[in-house]
């Protein structure tokens, strides 16, 4: 058996989902290293970015969501780490951004990224204020867009997950731009209703994103960002129906793990 896939989880500055995201990657067989962003910025971390196969930008409140979610962290990454990040991506590195991580990748211009070619770090989309009620922690259901080419969704269909954000409405310049992203399979995850269809209606869609966008991939399919938290559904007893549907939920793997497995086992 080959060496386990090595995952880098940067920490610090108000990120806070490193513990569960580490657990998720370890549960699917990866080796995880947590490295403080100050060490990455100062280039004094034990390894270079290129030594990892996966970079995971976890959820949290980097810099308190001040000014806009992910903004200050993205500005700092651009200042200190952009060249290394570009080389990591050129070498085939895979990136997962959850919630605040997705906001950060969007601010960095990695998502949705250019239509073709290497990343140019030009922001083209925004994750803006939810249409209704602001921040809300509630379980919802998401599904993979069958058209998507994301490496993070192989073997994933639909799953229940908690949504926990106030700025998650995905907005691009025009509906034509959104339609092109859709055609290209870049709108990887959708909020779905009870019938399984993408929805724009609250509360199934917590933020009001057009076409029910919950997660986005870049043109290569190697970078995925999503607003809801698969890192919060790692055991059957995380599910809010566990007390009533114990046997059924115990009979299968917790829904969040498939995404991490897909990303770890992709090549």
């Amino acid at each position: 058996m080959s060496r386990p896939v090595r995952v880098l989880i940067p920490v610090g500055f108000g990120l806070n989902c490193e513990e569960e995201t580490s657990a998720a990657f370890r549960m699917v067989g990866a080796e995880v290293e947590l490295v403080h962003l100050t060490d990455l910025f100062a280039h004094r971390a034990p390894r270079r970015l290129a030594d990892y196969q996966v970079l995971a930008m976890v959820g949290g409140f980097s810099y308190g969501d001040h000014i806009a979610g992910g903004l200050v962290l993205a500005t700092r990454i651009r200042a200190h780490l952009q060249a290394e990040l570009a080389a990591f991506l050129a070498g085939g590195g895979r990136v997962l951004g959850i919630c605040n991580g997705f906001q950060t990748l969007t601010r960095l211009g990695l998502l949705p990224g250019p239509e073709a070619g290497p990343p140019d770090f030009v922001p083209r989309a925004a994750l803006t204020n939810n249409d209704r009620l602001g921040y809300r922690d509630a379980w919802v259901r998401i599904a993979v867009d069958p058209k998507t080419r994301s490496v993070w969704t192989r073997g994933v269909a639909a799953l229940d997950v908690p949504s926990r954000h106030g700025e998650g409405k995905f907005v691009v310049e025009s509906s034509e731009v959104l339609a092109r992203l859709d055609q290209r399979g870049q709108l990887a995850f959708r909020w779905i209703d009870a019938a399984g269809h993408p929805t724009e209606a609250w509360p199934e869609n917590p933020n009001g994103s057009a076409l029910g966008v919950a997660g986005v991939t870049d043109s290569t399919g190697r970078i995925l960002g999503l607003m809801p938290h698969p890192d919060a559904f790692l055991y059957p007893w995380h599910h809010p129906d566990y007390a009533r549907r114990r046997a059924e939920l115990e009979s299968k793997e917790a829904g969040g793990l498939a995404i991490f497995r897909a990303g770890v086992t992709a090549d």
Binding site: N16, C17, E19, E20, A23, G59, G60, L133, G134, Y135, R136, D137, A138, P162, R164, H229, D231, A232, F233, L234, W237, H238, Y242
Partner: peptide
């Protein structure tokens, strides 16, 4: 629900 109740994924 405006308060997070499951960050850290330890809530049962």
């Amino acid at each position: 629900r405006a308060y997070d109740h499951e960050v850290k994924a330890l809530t049962v």
